[in-house]
Simulated scan of single mutants.
Amino acid sequence: MKNFALIGAAGYIAPRHMKAIQETGNRLVAAMDKFDSVGVLDSYFPEADFFTEFERFERHLEKLRRQEAAVDYLSVCSPNYLHDSHIRFGLKMDADVICEKPLVLNPWNLDALQETERETGRKVFTILQLRHHPAIIALREKVAQSDKIHDVDLTYITARGHWYHSSWKGDESKSGGIATNIGIHFFDMLLWIFGGVKHNILHLHTHDRAAGYLELEKARVRWFLSIDAKTLPQAATKSGKSIYRSITVDSEALEFSEGFTDLHTESYRQILDGKGYGLDAARGSLELTYAIRNQPVSRRSGTPHPFL
């Protein structure tokens, strides 16, 4: 049984990490969040010590280390812009780190973290859960068997209210913007299946939507991301849905809506078995989303997504 600590216990994604720690037979000994709405701990680890101040959390982990009850892993579920700092904190506390995506916001931050890994002898792992989905694994294996260039459409709309823009998620300097905050796991999936980026064109980029065209080694990709409910297809709104997710490959839908709930647990299993995804695995999607965030919009080249 390994000892875990967790930063960001009040966040949306934290319960998936708590569940993964529990289902892999390990123990959460300490958690931290500046917000104290963390009753979810009672469902998983009511005995975990909880802190709302980072300094007291750090002191507690140091005390455990001196008592030979040190934390083996630090799970980072904090806001995107804090990941880099919290990862380095975990490494310097002599723990391996499991961090939600995006691992960091800028590609050069990965280089600095690799140096800290070498200095501490500890490792950083990221959650790339779609790589564990059976349907996606099967598609990757199929694509690898030929040199065909596939036509792919990615559409992901997840409606968000006005609160989103008042939170850190609405601040591009903290979240990385739409492409990073809601799209990075889909971009990682596409790169994992179809290979690296050969050409990248941005057709639209606002505070609530983005779209573009990618040429990968084995795919031509039209993509559209949005948090605006007005962009939902009519079929989705009629059925009362606030989320629309669609990926088509050569006009055939990729069905992967089932099986999402256990992918964090599978990610933890792989990490604990020494097979997790580290810093290098995250680089491709981070470089792509960084480029999207900083490149100019162009309507003069590339095939636009149908939603445009």
Rank of each mutant, 00 (worst) to 15 (best):
residue 70 A to R: 07
residue 296 P to F: 08
residue 258 E to Y: 09
residue 115 E to M: 10
residue 245 R to K: 14
residue 145 Q to K: 06
residue 59 R to P: 12
residue 25 G to E: 05
residue 211 A to N: 06
residue 4 F to T: 01
residue 43 S to P: 08
residue 35 F to D: 15
residue 183 G to P: 01
residue 71 V to F: 03
residue 12 Y to V: 04
residue 197 V to I: 13
residue 2 K to D: 15
residue 171 D to Q: 13
residue 212 G to R: 01
residue 154 L to A: 05
residue 65 R to K: 14
residue 54 F to M: 13
residue 186 F to W: 08
residue 75 S to I: 05
residue 182 I to D: 00
residue 194 F to V: 04
residue 217 E to C: 11
residue 237 T to S: 11
residue 150 H to S: 03
residue 259 G to C: 03
residue 187 F to Q: 01
residue 220 R to A: 08
residue 245 R to I: 15
residue 184 I to T: 00
residue 54 F to G: 05
residue 72 D to Q: 07
residue 254 L to Y: 00
residue 128 L to Y: 04
residue 75 S to M: 06
residue 92 K to F: 11
residue 57 F to P: 01
residue 144 A to V: 09
residue 274 G to L: 08
residue 122 R to L: 06
residue 100 E to T: 03
residue 51 F to I: 00
residue 288 L to F: 14
residue 89 F to R: 04
residue 218 K to E: 10
residue 9 A to K: 06
residue 266 E to C: 12
residue 100 E to W: 09
residue 163 W to G: 12
residue 276 G to D: 02
residue 233 P to K: 02
residue 110 L to I: 11
residue 25 G to F: 12
residue 254 L to H: 00
residue 263 L to R: 04
residue 210 A to L: 09
residue 24 T to L: 06
residue 11 G to M: 04
residue 209 R to P: 15
residue 290 Y to V: 13
residue 40 V to H: 07
residue 217 E to G: 14
residue 48 A to H: 04
residue 74 L to C: 11
residue 48 A to D: 08
residue 306 P to G: 15
residue 175 S to W: 02
